[in-house]
Design a protein around this nucleic acid. Structure first.
Lengths: 227, 227
DNA sequence: CGTCTACTTGAACAACATCAACTAGAGTGG
DNA sequence: CCACTCTAGTTGATGTTGTTCAAGTAGACG
């Protein structure tokens, strides 16, 4: 059995921020319904440079969006959990790649179909716009974390972010390895590991294995985060 | 006279990526036309926490989007030049502030009006969506720069970005002080200054004062940038 | 029980930040 | 037009944070 809890719909798919295409009445045309896909751990959903044809909604599992430099350095721009939508692109091709962090189910929606259909519905584009704007906000927030915060603050910010998105805010399951966390925060995995240890020493968290984190003192974490 | 060239419409306003509201025929209702505004150097266009009511298009000048931490640390997420549109927000309030880097003219468009009007036009929302997705792409690219690149690479990337957006790709005018560049790149102004000196020593650039940069060897710059 | 990968921890090092002094250039007023 | 002032920028010396290299530990799986 896997070490981590499976990331099946904790927030059930098609949640609040949902574009809700799956919930249309049966009268909906078939172009509107998405295509379900399953990916195993580490599998690529789309690669950097591939044509942009679909956007995706996570049903279960976790997806990371990343870019790799020729010399092996990598930056992860975000993790997407059940209900989240990812894969938006301004141009013809994807500039980042998307990979399954664990066994993951997604629904793929053809972008052209969404655009064509959305033109008929007033609220639809607005919802789509909102999803992208939220993504933008998240990326800007992450830019602040990576550009201006200390290693301890970054790890604290990460744990608080995961906590907010978790079903149980005080007991966070981390589906991704240290290496992914490091590449998300602009650190090395060793530094991430040391900061976990430091937060533990500070009494802010307790660790049950590497992947299960108990947030003992949220205030102390918020203090460590700074903002 | 100012040291830097004035950033009057080098790419004229309402350029390619434009939402082109100003170009509508006279039959357009008045809610559609934007409100022209002028800001002097350093003036705030909107502040963090203020209500989100308008988006803006730069007519002339330069705008920086920034977030300030309580202890004075600051992250700039981007610079906006003539023709660019900024100010998108998913929620009710702005999470970053917008300030004029130099004397700047913008046109403010009421968001509610855009949404209401856009519902009538099929291509309009799509264009809006594209502007936001481009912004997202830029912020993701910046996250890679800030999270994974060395000081030299960051400054090289900055100069190449400014070059691409400049009328004359080989002679770049920098409207912003070193401090702004530093806060954009997640560095200190001293480090930025040193990296300029290093690029000069490498023969990649020449400096005519602090604000005018000649790109002598674009290849060497691209090499320094890494990606 | 053995192996593999993920994670942790330690020691030495490098890159960038900080602190400080100095320089250049723009604007101001005599 | 020149001297004064103010801000922006540069450069040097030192310090700190996080990286790198290395060795060891802990679970998960066969």
């Amino acid at each position: 059995m896997l070490q981590h809890a499976d990331f099946s719909p904790s927030l059930h798919p098609f949640a609040k921020s949902d574009i809700r295409l799956g919930h249309r009445p049966e009268t909906a045309t078939s172009v509107l319904s998405g295509m379900p896909m399953t990916y195993s751990r580490g599998a690529e959903i789309y690669g950097e440079g591939e044509a942009f044809n679909h956007i995706y909604q996570v049903v279960s599992g976790v997806v990371r969006i990343a870019k790799l430099l020729p010399d092996g350095r990598r930056q992860i721009s975000g993790f997407y959990l059940p209900g989240d939508i990812f894969g938006f692109e301004a141009g013809e091709i994807h500039h980042f790649s998307a990979e399954a962090v664990v066994q993951t189910k997604v629904i793929a929606f053809r972008w052209q179909s969404l655009i064509a259909t959305g033109a008929r519905s007033i609220g639809f584009f607005h919802e789509l716009l909102n999803v992208v704007m939220k993504d933008l906000r998240h990326t800007q927030a992450q830019l602040l974390v990576v550009g201006r915060k200390s290693a301890l603050e970054r790890v604290a910010a990460f744990l608080l972010e995961m906590s907010e998105r978790s079903a149980s805010p005080d007991l966070v399951e981390l589906p991704m390895p240290r290496h992914d966390i490091a590449d998300y925060l602009g650190l090395t995995l060793e530094t991430v590991s040391r900061m976990f240890a430091e937060l533990k020493d500070l009494g802010a968290i307790a660790l049950d294995g590497a992947r299960r984190v108990q947030l003992l003192d949220q205030d102390r974490l918020v203090g460590a985060r700074t903002n």
